[in-house]
């Protein structure tokens, strides 16, 4: 039963207020893209034991999507940030580095 702070409205939201949305920072591949790129975009997923970046929606709250950095093994939430970004903010990455030295996710570290 997680609690995650919605960065949009500031509420420390109960899991029951939230709707999980899977891996964050996917790049969309549309018409004309290569089969393998489209397949990867739609289906292949990071599934790490450890630091993960993912999407959530504060569905029974302010309704906004946001991103969270969370550990899939301890459930620690390192931080949340706007959905309107293409990569995790540096401050958050630094914070994760303090707690999980040497972490990587995709090509982010």
């Amino acid at each position: 039963m997680l609690t995650i702070q919605c960065p949009h409205c500031g509420v420390q939201a109960e899991e029951t207020e939230l709707s999980p949305g899977g891996e964050a920072h996917l790049s969309r591949f549309g018409p004309g893209s290569e089969d393998q790129d489209f397949e990867a975009y739609l289906f292949f997923r990071e599934n790490p034991k450890g630091v993960h970046f993912e999407r959530w929606r504060h569905v029974h709250g302010c309704g906004k999507w946001f991103h969270a950095a969370r550990c899939t093994v301890t459930m620690e939430v390192f931080g949340t940030y706007s959905a309107q970004t293409t990569e995790p903010p540096k401050a958050l990455r630094d914070k994760i580095s303090e707690k999980r030295p040497g972490w990587t996710w995709r090509d982010i570290a």
């Binding site: 949305g21 929606r57 309704g63 959905a83 309107q84």
Partner: peptide
């Protein structure tokens, strides 16, 4: 409605 919001907020924001 959720589908619309998802695309608007996370892809074409």
């Amino acid at each position: 409605h959720a589908h619309m919001e998802e695309w608007l907020q996370t892809e074409w924001w």
